[in-house]
Each structure stands twice: as C-alpha cells, then as structure tokens.
Design a protein around this nucleic acid. Structure first.
Lengths: 313, 313
DNA sequence: CTTTAAAATACTCAATTTGAGTATAAAGGA
DNA sequence: TCCTTTATACTCAAATTGAGTATTTTAAAG
C-alpha cells in the first residue's frame, strides 16, 4: 500500500475559491463577481509558503480588504466541474472580514446571502415560500420515488431539513437543504447534470458552476461555528453596541435571539468590555459602546462561546 | 478579480492521505504503513467521479476493509513538505471502519493512536508525563521568549492546552497541543524546519513528513464529532453491549464517562434497540446485546447526540 | 412641554439538563 | 456460600436554558 506518486498520476490544476463574509447592519454579505453569479476564485500561485498565506495575499490584493479569520472549507475535485480534460482541484476557503462600506459607494460585489438562499432567513418567522413552494414540490418528488423505502427516506429528509414534522428548524442544515433541492431537481444547477430536469425556478438566484453549493457549505460552517467559537468578532467594527452584536449574529443565524439572554451570555463569558463611550443613538436610549476583550483573541481556540439561539417558536 | 486559470499557474500533483480509525476493545487504532511511521497515502487517480469515491475505492482496494463513514479533513499544499520542486497537494481524509480483527492475526498496521500521543490518554487520570516532562519544558520555553507579551501569551497557551490553570482538560485540543509542542521544539519533526532544535525526545513516536500533524487533526475532529453526531456507530460491530459502546467512546475521547449517565443519554436519544440476545458474559452479570436503530443512519445528519463526557475530575 | 417610540437594563421563574451519587439485582467462579 | 463483576433502577442538587415582566433612559414628534 502507499507509495511514491508517479510522475503524472496525480497531475492536476489547483485553484482557490473563497467565501468571503461580512455583515453590514442586518445583512450577511458575501463577496461575488460576475454580477453576483460567482464566487471569487483564481489560480493558486505557488510562491507562497502555505495555502492559507497564499489565499490571504490573493484576497487582499484583489479586494483591498484585510482578512480577519480564515478557515479551509472543503476541497472539490469532482470530475465534471465544467472544465473538461484536466482535473481541476478547487480548494475553498471561508474568510471573515470587517464591514465593507468602503467610502459611501455601495460595492455591488457584496450581496446578501439570502439572495441565493431566501428560505434560510427565518428572522421574520418561517418564510412563506417554504410552505407555499418548496414543501409541496418536495413532497411530489418524494411520492414519485421508485420504491416504498425510498419514498419514506425522502419524506424523512424533508421533515428533518425543512421542519415539517415535530423537529424544529435547524439553521445549520444549509447544505443538506440545498442538496435536497438539488436532488429533487428544484434548482436550475441540477439541470446540467443527470438529475431530474429542473422545474420552474424556485426563488433564489443560482450561481455558476457549483458555487452555490460552496456558498451553502460556508454558511453552514459559519452558522455552526458561531455557537461555540467567538468568531463574530471578526465581523464587527472596533466598537459596537450589544444590539449591533446581536443583530450580526441574528443575520448569520437567520433567526431571532432573546435579547436579555443574549446579554446574559455575553457578559457571563466576559467577551467584551466597555469603552466608556456611548453610541450616537439611532432612536431610543443611547447604548454603550463595547469592544472585544483582547484576551479573547488568544482564547479563541477554546471557550465555549455558546449563543442563545432561540428555540422552536 | 477572478479568472480563467492560465495554463500552468496552478499546476500541481495531488495525493490522498487517510486517517483510518477503528476501535478494538479499548484501544483506538489508526492504520499505518512503513512500520508505523506513516499514514497510508498515494497518488490521486483521476478516473473517479468524486474525490470521496476515489478515496473509498483506493482504501478498499488497499486494505480490504469496507469503509463506513468518510469525511474530508484538510488539504495541505505547503511549500516544503519534503518534495522539492513541484508542489504536492495532499488531500487528507478521516475514515471510520469496523473492528479490524481480520482472522486472528493481529495486523501490525493498526496502531493505538496513543502510541503517537501518549499525553492524550486521560482514562487513568492525568498522564504523569505531562507534569513531569511536558509542562516543565514548555514553561522553560515560555520563559525564554523574547518579549514580555510573548512570554505571557505562551504561558496562557500552555495553561489552556494542558490544563495547568483553572480551566479543565479539553480533549478536543489535540492539534493545538501538538502545535504547541512543535513550536517549542519538543517533537523531533520540528528539527527539520526552522524551529528551535528539538530537545531530547519526548515519549511518543514521531512520523514521517507531517503525518503526525495530520493524525492530530483527525483525532481532534473525531473527538469533537462524537459529542454531537452518532458516528461511534461506524466503529462498532453489528451487536454490542452498552459497556462496549461506552468503552469505545472512552477510547476515542481519552477519558472516562459516568456509566449511568451515559446510558440515560443513549436511551433518551433512542439510538439503540435490544436484539434480545445476551452477551457471553466476560465476568459479571451478562449484558444485553444492542444494535443501532436503522433510522439513526438516516438521521445521522441531525440529532444532538451529546455524550456525557465527564467534567474536570 | 407632553407623548411616544426605541432602546437599555434589572429581575424573576419554571423547566430541563447535567453531574454525581446510592441502592439493588443478576450471574459466575472460588 | 461468599466474592467479584457487571447491569439496572432511582434520587438529588446544581447549573443551564428559555421565556417572561417591569422599569429606566433617551431622542424626537406633536
């Protein structure tokens, strides 16, 4: 077993793809190119010591944004990823960066990620399109399954992923939901492959190649992560109010939090400290401005930064 | 930004590396080659539709083991990974498989992972070598740091990773601990690079290339995962007693569990069902044999399969 | 100057979950 | 018959979690 790679057995081309996330106000943003149809990606240049540094340099050169937290997402090397012939290995990263408002001009590259996944935003309750468009079509697909076992299995997946049964909505299942819709032929990307022909389109913008799947992977990872690691920090400006922090988390998670409990947790964990300054109130009583405690940066590998995502509803 | 990859900008060679885990009795095993000095790896053959299928086929051909759960771990493409010249992209996977006892003959390829990380096994309390050998040397390294800020930062990392302060031992930090030892020059692998020269060796077998780091990554991932996903199942035989299940989890986590609470959780989550048969008792009162409920396989993407890893001590 | 809306802030409370026990039953071997 | 080993049944207190009420502070609208 195992072995020296022969000269060209594993020959391939490597490229980087990035899911760069920022939060502006209450919108979770992702950086796109080609009019919102693709994620930034490019060839992997081999003059960097590590992949991660290569990605950092590349992103910062392209976007002029400092990149806070970076994490590897997934590596795809599936056969028909568009390019025929030589296999392309695509190494995908998730990157978090501070609010983007460059200089007044809204950069069109930063899109709300709910543009691509409208069913993922439950901040104002269950999106109507789930009950109206998604579930009925998925049910039809389940009924059309070959055997009885398959029918049941599909039904169970629908119940779990879209909370139609007694289980509550689970915001982490972004990728599973996308894959379910893909298999059911409800997204246009599915048409290219062998899957069932795509029905009339569902709301939600498609992307080129498998970029929407990559975005789903990034969203799922980030949503899972904010529950036990203080990564939101990377998305916040140097000083912020607690409500702004809460709104940022809500934007990412796609659901509302209980304000009092959110604050209880935040100060139990001693993640922030007062700056002494107050915010230019945007309506009500002025709020204190906080900053992250410097030790958080070090401890970030550890503490259980659980966030009180509220339950069923 | 972004772009068509040019002809040879991202040229590279791809190889697969696998961390294959099994549990026999109370030993967590990992499949190795070259007399326990390396993880199985080989060139990535491009005639498979997806990476994962490629890995599966490759592993099953090499080891004649059916592969249960497979998950991508990490992709390395760092410059000086041994081979000079062309960059090698190494895509690493974690794979779980059933108990290995092929036919009586103990396969020497399956090694206890604590052979490589003796400080990670806390099942019989804190390993003596931590207090005796590791912490003193790490402290010396911290004292030798250039600035005061660096000294403090190193001290904090030691406290968190090796539970010297008031925080409890966190079994998930396998990778962080390895990297700390690496930076401190306490593992022989560090000698090759720029890091401080390795001291007289610490207990724990080293591996070739960066395979020990990859193993650490796999261990960390698996330890984190068993807490919220029912992946242990992939490691168990078709029928097993609850104690055997508990021992398997303990083997992976490297710590003891509270028996009664473990069982409470197991049946709250309805993960198993009785087979009706009893085990050939190994000493005491015979135990019932259980099997996993078939639905678990489907739901495995979901349920919070929390395991009661016991606290501080 | 009063009213109102938008927040911040301070508490309370019940239900669950968690960690850790004690007590008892069943089996086999010395 | 005693002893060891394991299974199994309960109990209990502490901590955590989810959800609520009540009160205060400010800016802006009327």
């Amino acid at each position: 077993m195992a072995v020296e790679p022969t000269a060209d057995a594993g020959a391939a081309t490597a490229e980087l793809t990035a899911v760069l996330v920022a939060v502006t106000g209450d919108a979770p943003r992702v950086l796109t190119i080609q009019d919102g149809q693709a994620l930034p990606s490019g060839p992997f240049e081999s003059n960097h010591p590590t992949l991660q540094l290569g990605l950092r340099a590349w992103v910062e050169r392209q976007t002029h944004h400092p990149l806070g937290y970076v994490e590897q997402l997934y590596t795809f090397a599936d056969k028909d990823r568009g390019h025929a012939g030589a296999r392309v290995i695509s190494i995908c990263y998730l990157g978090l960066t501070r609010e983007t408002r460059a200089s007044g001009a809204r950069d069109p590259g930063w899109q709300s990620w709910y543009r691509y996944f409208p069913w993922e935003d439950w901040r104002d309750g269950p999106p109507a399109l789930i009950a109206r468009a998604i579930v009925p079509r998925l049910r039809a697909w389940a009924r059309a399954a070959p055997g009885n076992a398959t029918k049941r299995a599909r039904g169970a997946r629908i119940a779990i992923d879209f909370a139609t049964g007694d289980t509550a909505w689970n915001e982490d299942l972004v990728l599973q939901r996308y894959e379910l819709l893909y298999e059911a032929g409800l997204v246009p990307e599915a048409r290219r492959r062998g899957a069932a022909a795509a029905d009339s389109a569902l709301p939600g913008t498609a992307m080129l190649h498998d970029h929407r799947r990559i975005l789903a992977t990034g969203m799922a990872r980030l949503r899972a992560k904010i529950k036990y690691r203080p990564v939101v920090f990377e998305l916040m400006p140097p000083a912020f109010t607690l409500l702004e922090l809460q709104r940022a988390v809500e934007a990412l998670a796609g659901r509302r939090l209980h304000k009092q409990n959110f604050r209880r947790l935040i100060d139990q964990q001693q993640l922030v400290e007062e700056t002494g300054q107050m915010s230019a109130a945007t309506g009500g009583r002025p709020a204190q401005l906080f900053r992250f405690r410097p030790t958080v940066l070090l401890e970030r590998a550890v503490a259980g930064t659980k966030l009180p995502l509220s339950r069923p509803a």
